[in-house]
Design a protein around this nucleic acid. Structure first.
Length: 561
RNA sequence: GUCCCAGUAGCUCAGCUGGAUAGAGCAACGGACUUCUAAUCCGUAGGUCGGGGGUUCGAAUCCCUCCUGGGACGCCA
C-alpha cells in the first residue's frame, strides 16, 4: 500500500531514533526524547536523497551545538542492511543521506502490477466523508464560479476516494425560500409578456434570457391555460415546471463537465419533512435560542461569533440559515466522519456561525471543513470581462465547455490554490499551442503511447515487470524520473490531507517535465534488447502515473494528439 | 469601522505545520527536428518574497504594525 519513498523515509527515521537512543545510552549525548523531526527530500540534489533536521531540533533540549549533535548521531547510525550509502553532516546541522542508486527500482514493478490502482493509499481507513459542492441556485445557469467549485470539488472527491475514504458527492438544491419567490414572479411576468399581457419582472427577480426561454417552452405545452389561474397557484405550477427543467439542465451540464453526484439534496424536503423544525427544537433544548421582537434567534455569540442570528423571522418563516442548520444536522446524522463544503469566498462570514451551529448541535466543529474559493476573473482579448447577474451577462459553464472543452476548463480551475483569485484567460485556454499548460501533461502521455505502439508494431511484447533488469536504468534523468514516480502515493496522501487538488496538477506537470527531458536525451527503443525492455517498463510506469493522476483531476489521457 | 483572502521574476502563480543557494509556466534572448510525436528539449537572463519592526541558531513562512487590491459584514441566500 505504501510506496518505497514512504518506506525509506520511515526507515531513516527509525535509524535516527535508534542512533539517538544509542548515543544517550553511551553518554555521548544527554538522554532526550526524539523531537518531532522530519525526513525529507532536499531541494538541492547535492544534499543527498533524504535529509533530516533532527540535530538542529535537539540543540535546545540537549544544550549542545547542532553540528556536534549531528556528528554524534551519525556516529551511532547502524547502516548495515540499509540502502544508505553515505551520510554527511552539512550546513547548520542537517544530516544528509545518500542512497544506493538502485534504491527506488523496486517501485517500478509495483507501479506496473498495481496499474490503475497504483497510488491508492489508506489514510481514510474507509471512513465516510462528504463533499458538498456547487449547490448553485437552481434558478439559473452555472457560471464561472460554479465551474471552479465543480472542478475543485469533484477532483477533491476523487482524491479522497483514492486516499481511502468512502466519498459522497452532494449537491444541495436551494429550491425553497425567497429566491424561489422571486423566481416564480419572474416566470409569471415572462409568461404574461409572451402572451401579450402587461407585466414587469420584479427588480430583485431574474432577468436572464433563459427565463423567457423556459416560459416559451411552458407555453408550447400549456398555452394560455394559466392566464386566469390565481397567482399563487399559477406561480407554484410554473416554479415546479421551471425547476425541473433547470435542475435537469444543471445536471446535464455538470455531467458534460465530468461531474457526477451521488446525492441531490432538496432544501424544500427539509422543510416538508419537519427537519427544519426539529433542528430548531434541538437547539432550543440545548439552550441556544431566545426570542426577541417576535423572531427566534440563535446565540451565535456563544461560539465567538460577532452577532446572534435569526432562525425564524417575525413573520414565522424560517431563514435560509435555519434550513442550512437542518441540512448539516442531517449530514451528521448520516454518519459522515467529515463534512466538506466548498463555498465562494463571499460566504466566508457564514463559516464561523455554521461551525458554531455544529458545536451547538453536539458535534465536533472540526468535522466541518469549509473550503473557500476566491472569485474567478475572466479575461477575454486581454481585457477583464465583468460578470453580473443583474444584467444576465455572464459566461456560463455550457459556453465555457463549448469554447475550450472539458479538459482545459477543468485543468485551469484546479491548477491554482482555491485561495488565489483565479485569472481565467480565455485566449490562453482556447489556444492549441504550447502556451497552454494542459497539453504538456497530456502530450507526455500521448508520446508514451506512441512509443508503446511502435514497440507493438515491431512485434515486441511488453516485458514481464518481474523479469526486467532495472539496473540498466542508470542515467541521471532516469533515476530522477523513477524517484518522482515513486512519490505519487505520497502526493495523493498529501493532496487529500491538505484538501488541495492543485498539488496534484503541479506534481503531474513535474512528472511530464521529467519525462519530456528524458525523452529528448535518450531513446527508449534501441537494438539493445534488455535496455529497451527496461526503458519500455519505465515509460509504461510513467504512463500509469500520469494516467492515474489525470483521472483524479477528471482529465482525459489521450493516446494520440 | 470590524473580519476574511491575497501581495513572491515583466505576467500568471507554487512554496507558508520555520530550515541549506527562494521555484515553475508564460513572455525575452541564444541554440536543438535525415533518429520513438518540436504541443518537446537544452541554455542565458530576470528577485529589497508589499514596507517597517519583532521572536531565534535560522523567517517568504510565526507575531505586531502600516500600505495596496479583492470580498464579507441583512429578520438575503
Amino acid at each position: 500500500m505504501s510506496g518505497i519513498v514512504e518506506k525509506t523515509r520511515g526507515l531513516i527515521a527509525g535509524l535516527m531514533k535508534e542512533a539517538l537512543v544509542s548515543a544517550g545510552k553511551k553518554g555521548i549525548l544527554p538522554v532526550v526524547e526524539a523531537p518531532d523531526f522530519v525526513v525529507e527530500a532536499p531541494r538541492e540534489k547535492d544534499h543527498g536523497d533524504f535529509a533530516t533536521n533532527m540535530a538542529m531540533l535537539l540543540a535546545k533540549p540537549a544544550r549542545t551545538a547542532p553540528r556536534k549533535i549531528a556528528e554524534a548521531l551519525t556516529g551511532e547510525l547502524d547502516l548495515k542492511n540499509s540502502p544508505v550509502e553515505k551520510v554527511e553532516v552539512a550546513g547548520p546541522g542537517f544530516i544528509n543521506f545518500y542512497l544506493k542508486s538502485d534504491w527506488a527500482f523496486a517501485e517500478l514493478p509495483q507501479i506496473l502490477s498495481l496499474n490503475e490502482n497504483y497510488g491508492r493509499v489508506n489514510i481514510g481507513g474507509g471512513r465516510k466523508i462528504q463533499v458538498e459542492f456547487v449547490s448553485a441556485n437552481p434558478t439559473g445557469l452555472l457560471h464561472m464560479g460554479n465551474a471552479r467549485g465543480a472542478a475543485l470539488g469533484d477532483s477533491l472527491a476523487s482524491i479522497l476516494d483514492f486516499a481511502g475514504y468512502e466519498v459522497t458527492r452532494e449537491f444541495y438544491i436551494n429550491d425553497a425560500g425567497n429566491q424561489i419567490e422571486h423566481f416564480g414572479r419572474s416566470l409569471e411576468a415572462r409568461y404574461l409578456q409572451l402572451l401579450g399581457k402587461k407585466a414587469e419582472v420584479p427588480e430583485e427577480g431574474y432577468h436572464g434570457e433563459d427565463i423567457t426561454d423556459t416560459m416559451r417552452g411552458f407555453i408550447e405545452s400549456f398555452g394560455d391555460a394559466y392566464l386566469e389561474t390565481p397567482e399563487g397557484e399559477r406561480r407554484e405550477v410554473m416554479v415546479s415546471y421551471a425547476l425541473e427543467e433547470k435542475i435537469a439542465d444543471i445536471k446535464n451540464t455538470l455531467e458534460d463537465f465530468g461531474v457526477l453526484y451521488d446525492v441531490w439534496f432538496s432544501e424544500k424536503a427539509l422543510h416538508r419533512s419537519g427537519q427544519v423544525r426539529d433542528a430548531i427544537k434541538r437547539l432550543g433544548e440545548r439552550g441556544y435560542l431566545y426570542e426577541q421582537e417576535d423572531a427566534v434567534w440563535f446565540k451565535a455569540t456563544d461560539f465567538g461569533v460577532e452577532k446572534d442570528e435569526v432562525l425564524v423571522r417575525s413573520n414565522g418563516v424560517p431563514t435560509y440559515f435555519a434550513a442550512d442548520i437542518a441540512y448539516h444536522m442531517n449530514k451528521f446524522e448520516r454518519g459522515f466522519h467529515k463534512v466538506i463544503n466548498i463555498w465562494g469566498a463571499d460566504h466566508h462570514g457564514h463559516v464561523p456561525r455554521m461551525k458554531g451551529v455544529v458545536e451547538a448541535l453536539g458535534y465536533d466543529p472540526e468535522a466541518l471543513q469549509v473550503i473557500l474559493m476566491q472569485l474567478v476573473r475572466l479575461y477575454k482579448n486581454g481585457v477583464i470581462v465583468r460578470m453580473s447577474k443583474r444584467t444576465g451577462q455572464f459566461v456560463t459553464l455550457e459556453e465555457l465547455l463549448e469554447e475550450v472543452g472539458r479538459d482545459v476548463a477543468r485543468y485551469f480551475f484546479v491548477m491554482r490554490s482555491p485561495d488565489s483569485h483565479l485569472e481565467f484567460d480565455m485566449d490562453l485556454a482556447k489556444s492549441r499551442t504550447n502556451d497552454n499548460p494542459v497539453f504538456y501533461i497530456q502530450y507526455a502521455h500521448a508520446r508514451i503511447c506512441s512509443i508503446l505502439r511502435q514497440l507493438a508494431e515491431l512485434g515486441r511484447e511488453l516485458p514481464d515487470p518481474g523479469r526486467v533488469d532495472y539496473s540498466l536504468l542508470n542515467e541521471e534523468s532516469e533515476l530522477m524520473l523513477i524517484r518522482k514516480l515513486a512519490e505519487f502515493p505520497e502526493e495523493v496522501a498529501a493532496s487529500a490531507r491538505d484538501m488541495a487538488p492543485h498539488r496534484m496538477s503541479r506534481y503531474l506537470h513535474e512528472v511530464a517535465g521529467l519525462f519530456h527531458s528524458y525523452y529528448n536525451a535518450h531513446r527508449v527503443i534501441s537494438d539493445r534488447e534488455e535496455l529497451t525492455d527496461a526503458r519500455a517498463a519505465l515509460a509504461c510506469a510513467t504512463r500509469t502515473v500520469i494516467r492515474n493522476g489525470l483521472r483524479l483531476l477528471g482529465l482525459s489521457a489521450p493516446e494520440k494528439m
